[in-house]
Structures are given as C-alpha cells and as structure tokens.
C-alpha cells in the first residue's frame, strides 16, 4: 500500500495508459459521490470539476509516459495542475473556477478507504513484530520532522518579515 510507489522506481515504469484511463474514470466517479455527499457541492458543478481534474491527471500520465526525461507521475500531474491554473495561462480562470467545485478532502476519502482494504498480512506482522519501541520512535520521527519543518519555515518567514 504505497501511494508514492511510483516515485521509488528509478527507471521509467511502463504505464499502461488505457488501463489507467479506465481505472481513473472509476476512481473519479467514486470521488464525485464523496464530493456530492460530504461537502454537498451540486452534482452538475462537481461533475464538470471532476472532468477537469480527470483531464489534468491524464495529461500528467501522458507526460510520465512520453516526456523526454522521467519524473514520477505525481510530480507530472502536479506540474500540469499548476501550469493549467497559472494566472498567465489562457483560460486558467475557468479551470480554477471548475476545480473549486471539487473538494480536496472528498478526494482523499476514497484513497484512504482503498488503503484500509489494502492492508496486507505482512504489514500486520511487521507492526506486531516491531513492537511498542518502534511505534514510539515512529511517533517522534513524525513529530520531529513536522516540528523541524515548522520551526525552520517560521524562522525564515520572520527573517523575511513577510
């Protein structure tokens, strides 16, 4: 269960684009249900927004597959999303407006549900085997990484006086 698994591969993975295109339709439809149920965004608005998000994702995947240099798919998708919504990009205002009809937390809900279903026997075993010591260390790893980033960012922002 690894959402960054693609990033781990050093060489370009051979993405099956048709397979991804179909699976993404299903995932986006599931996301659309969440978007309508939770944040109560009108279905028609959410639908157009989701089509925009789908297209951004697919362009990102096309680039992952065919760009002259390799970047992980999440990086390409993110870059396409950024480029499509930069103030200087023609039509960006419309894209931004549509994307606003998609709630980011509603998109995360199905991803985490899949993650819950994906827990493997081995992961349960590792968690049990590692015991409370590693669990405690892990909590401090997360706290330390988060707090360290907050402190450095805070310091620089204050120095900048921004």
């Amino acid at each position: 269960m690894s959402e960054n698994a693609i990033a781990m591969e050093r060489t370009r993975p051979n993405i099956d684009l048709t397979d991804h295109a179909v699976t993404l339709v299903i995932v986006c439809l599931v996301g659309l249900v969440m978007n309508t149920v939770g944040p109560a965004i009108p279905l028609a608005d959410g639908f157009v927004g989701m089509v925009v998000i789908y297209l951004i994702t697919m362009v990102g995947l096309l680039l992952t597959r065919f760009a002259p240099f390799y970047l992980p798919s999440v990086a390409w998708i993110s870059l396409v999303g950024i480029l499509a919504t930069l103030p200087w990009t023609p039509g960006s205002e419309w894209i931004v407006e549509q994307a606003k009809s998609v709630n980011f937390l509603a998109l995360a809900t199905p991803a985490l549900a899949y993650a819950g279903f994906a827990i493997a026997k081995k992961e349960i075993e590792v968690a049990k085997h590692s015991g409370w010591k590693l669990a405690l260390v892990a909590c401090l790893v997360f706290l330390g990484t988060y707090a360290g980033s907050v402190l450095v960012a805070e310091l620089i922002l204050r120095l900048q006086g921004a």
Binding site: L24, V80, A108, Y114
Partner: peptide
C-alpha cells in the same frame, strides 16, 4: 486495492496542483 491507492491519489494531487497555480 494496493495499486488502486496510487490511482486514487492522482486526482487528489491534480486538485492540489490547481490550488498552487493561482497562488503562485
């Protein structure tokens, strides 16, 4: 379910991308 997490997170990443552009 495991490979589906990767796919399900992609629209989420795309959505985040669309919040970065306007705030450049």
């Amino acid at each position: 379910a495991s490979p589906l997490i990767v796919i399900a997170i992609m629209p989420f990443i795309a959505k985040f991308g669309t919040t970065i552009g306007p705030a450049i």
